[in-house]
Design a protein around this nucleic acid. Structure first.
Lengths: 196, 196, 196, 196
DNA sequence: TCCTAACCGAGACGGTACGTCCCGTCTTTCA
DNA sequence: TGAAAGACGGGACGTACCGTCTCGGTTAGGA
């Protein structure tokens, strides 16, 4: 949990490196044996660290796994340009990348669990900040760019994200470029206000 | 677990009622304490059954939880009528029901884990048999009913299912009727062949 | 277990051969895996019999094992001739045979347990009827055959039996002929009235 | 179990008090419910210790029970003085004490099992170190102290030990002082070299 | 010869203990 | 002081047996 903003100093680089080493070990292990197979002892072993050292940084196995999942999935929104059609296409392409990442389908159930947990451990916006970003853009720009303004503004993102997820569940792999393009086509066509 | 085509048994036959009692206990427990809180001992206690009896039917806690999840989520496809537009609308409404079911968001991560597990414990088609049903229908009827036949035939279902899932993740509850209707509208509009 | 005075039965009588088959299986198994390793299921398997069949004859595992132990160890006293010296030598030789029997050291701890159990399951006299036989003889004949009549009459047997037992415990095998002879010599010499 | 020569440990050292507490709990329990009634869970409960802590020290229930039995029965040889007749009398008196100890007849079958087990869990010399001690003494001193040097040197101890054991088995209690004295008398008389 | 109680194989079932594994905390030694 | 090592309390897991119980089917008398 050492903030990366501590990097400024030459004083104590070791501690923050350990964080990363541990999280990486978690991800490796998750890929090898699944979330359920991740044990603190094995994580420590792979990171070359004592079990106690892990507990100095995260209070529990769940927090550790959550942090690893968040590290791999969060914080990388695609850029919004102000052109809705373009942004929807970029979004589809971006999700294609995310869903195709290594570890991703090992981590996904853990992310779901954390998002749906009671109390919630991660918000969906932590994972997919652009849901709100795209919604805001849609709310503001739909009318002026020929889109149907009466539509729930989060819906475009949900269609993109959800179809990628459904594809992953059904086939075991993320969406193909072709599939992503078709999704974007259908979503855009479906949202465009029909002719005069 | 007890096959209804109960082939000539020797020995005392399994009580088929017990299967259901146990699964029900799992679901109750899942609702009370979450998937992680489910223990075989407590399941057995609630079902009024010995722990060993549970293990006669399912080889591990994971299999038991998976079976319970499957029992609550699977096997209930919506009926396909042959009218694509109608079936898409029915699908959206059906998913609204499924995603709004009690236990559902406690069970969902478990289902995802089982589907994405290696080896796969449940197939997505076990859970959502209509993905293929609707795909087949779309493949055969799209052209004659004014839909774009060049589209990946599973895509309509993925858009419906995925948006509901995204909505659940983002808001914590299943899609509202209004949201479902809008999804169906957009998907249908997006798939219809444009032009003169 | 089947009383041969088979009280007026109606229905199919128990096969008395089965009793023996089962006990033999117990002894075999005891030899192979020790008393602790004897399970009713394995006994039944080796006897080619259903587990329930075993329980029709003996009420518990303990009773079964006890019966097997008793069957192998009991009921074979050596003959008393009325000549004390001769009988002591015969006793030593007899014990040499008993302690050298196959199974014997697998069964011995079980016999001890049964004898020392509270409540007692077998009496020592069941196992070694000659302890009292020889004591009676000693009590009656010691004086007239030159033995010390003030000695506890069970002591001769205890010395014979006990030394054989100690030898078994220390070396893992029953007493050798030579050892037995020496024991008899020492006991006889020790008991003989000294002096003119 | 904790070696007193505690080689430079890293990590938290085992509490040596815990060893004793656990063994004491085993002995108490053995006295209350017999060897068969000893469960690791109940031992741990009585010792105020986690079940896993017991398994850190002994690999199985059998080993634990064996260790407790050994602790109560072994390691307390009587002192040898170099005077054979005196040592035989002391030995008889010592065995009288040992066989009269509380728990002893609950523990005895367990000891026999451990000694006769394959592989052997305890050697007889662990329990009765003076068998060899007295044998050595006899071998060296018999001739000079008027004893028969052609006798198997372990035989004196076997006669003492064995008769006490036989007495316990037959009567349920250890040898009385009178019985012990008679045993010593007979053994000594039996071993003495007869006159010219 | 047929009836019928008992036998017998097979295996489900309620229990209980085992030995293993892991968690999160703690106590020690070493650098 | 922090990290390594590992003991410890706690608790769930999956396995193995026990002794009981139901099944289906067989078998040896007595009527």
């Amino acid at each position: 949990m050492t903030t990366e903003a501590a990097a400024r100093h030459i004083g104590r680089p070791r501690s923050s490196a350990t964080d990363a080493t541990i999280l990486e070990a978690v991800l490796n292990l998750m890929g090898d044996v699944g979330v359920a197979g991740v044990t603190v002892a094995e994580v420590a072993r792979r990171a070359g660290v004592a079990r106690a050292t892990v507990y100095l940084r995260w209070p529990s196995r769940a927090a550790l796994v959550g942090a690893a999942a968040k590290a791999v999935a969060g914080g990388k929104p695609f850029e919004l340009t102000g052109d809705l059609e373009r942004d929807i296409r970029r979004g589809a392409a971006f999700l294609e990348t995310v869903f195709g990442a290594p570890y991703f389908n090992a981590i996904l159930p853990e992310l779901m669990r954390a998002v749906l947990a009671d109390p919630q451990e991660i918000t969906f916006d932590d994972l997919a900040p652009n849901r709100e970003g795209l919604a805001t853009e849609y709310r503001e720009l739909a009318a002026t760019q020929g889109f149907d303004g009466s539509i729930e503004p989060q819906l475009p993102f949900d269609l993109l994200f959800g179809s990628a997820l459904a594809h992953l569940l059904a086939t075991g792999t993320g969406p193909s470029p072709d599939y992503s393009r078709q999704v974007a086509d259908v979503v855009i066509a479906g949202l465009k206000r029909r002719g005069p």
